[in-house]
Every structure is written in C-alpha cells, then in structure tokens.
C-alpha cells in the first residue's frame, strides 16, 4: 500500500513529506524504544514504516540512519517544530493519527501490511 492509503485508513494528518504520499510501503514495525528500532533495523528495514509514540528528535535521526520509509506517530501525539524541521531536512515523511498503537497496527495488518520481522531470533539476529 502507499503512504496515501495509510493516511486515509488511519485518518492521519501528514506533518511532513506530503509530496511522498505515493511512496510504496510494504513493511512496518512498532516500537517506542529506539534500541529496539535499531535492533530490528539490523535485519533490514529499508523503506519500512515505523509506528511509534516516541516524540524525540532521535526518532527522526534513527529513521534516517536506517533508511526508514516514513514515521507514523500514534495516539494523537504531535511532533514538535524542531522534529518537523529535521524531518523536512532529511526528507522523511511524518504522519500522525489519533488511533492508539494497538488499533493502528491492527488496521494496517488487516489491510495486508506485514511486519519487518515476525519474531526475534535466537540472539544471532
């Protein structure tokens, strides 16, 4: 599905990167701990959607270094101006939805969006 499909599905507001709504998103994962984001991205999360409630500039930097496709903030949390500025600068789309994280994930999964990884490995991952 495209970022635009995700926006409609979740009645989301596009905070940054509205020119990228045609971007294809095939995988996603949800995390608030950036250590978890980095650990998941180690196995490859290029172009993935990050669903998060983490409202720090570090989430944008993290998305940048692991080449995520977009960030979706849940539970109606609005990114701060510095975060939006940073996202525009490094060109990562930001969306926000009022749905809670569980609902957000459920609705996207139901529509066919898959997780980047299904489960953690045996420590070698």
């Amino acid at each position: 599905m495209t970022l635009g499909d995700i926006q409609k599905l979740l009645d989301a507001e596009v905070i940054a990167g509205s020119e990228n709504l045609g971007r294809e998103i095939s995988h996603a994962f949800a995390a608030d701990l950036l250590s978890d984001v980095l650990a998941i991205a180690r196995r490859g999360a290029d172009g993935a959607l990050l669903i998060t409630g983490n409202m720090t500039p570090q989430v944008i930097y993290t998305a940048d270094v692991v080449d995520l496709g977009a960030i979706l903030f849940v539970r109606g949390k609005r990114p701060t101006e510095p975060m939006i500025e940073l996202a525009n600068q490094i060109q990562i789309p930001l969306l926000m939805t009022s749905y809670i994280m569980f609902e957000t994930c459920g609705r996207l999964y139901h529509q066919g969006l898959k997780g980047c990884v299904e489960k953690a490995g045996d420590g070698a991952d």
């Binding site: 701990l33 250590s35 978890d36 980095l38 180690r42 570090q58 989430v59």
Partner: peptide, 17 residues
C-alpha cells in the same frame, strides 16, 4: 530512558552488527 534508550542493548547490538 525517556529518549527511548538505555535498554542495555547498545553494546551488544554494536557487536552483532
């Protein structure tokens, strides 16, 4: 921890990657 770090995974993540 508020920033989403400090889970004690950093150094082992570096080693693995």
């Amino acid at each position: 921890r508020e920033l989403g770090f400090g889970a004690g995974m950093g150094l082992s993540n570096i080693k693995k990657v």
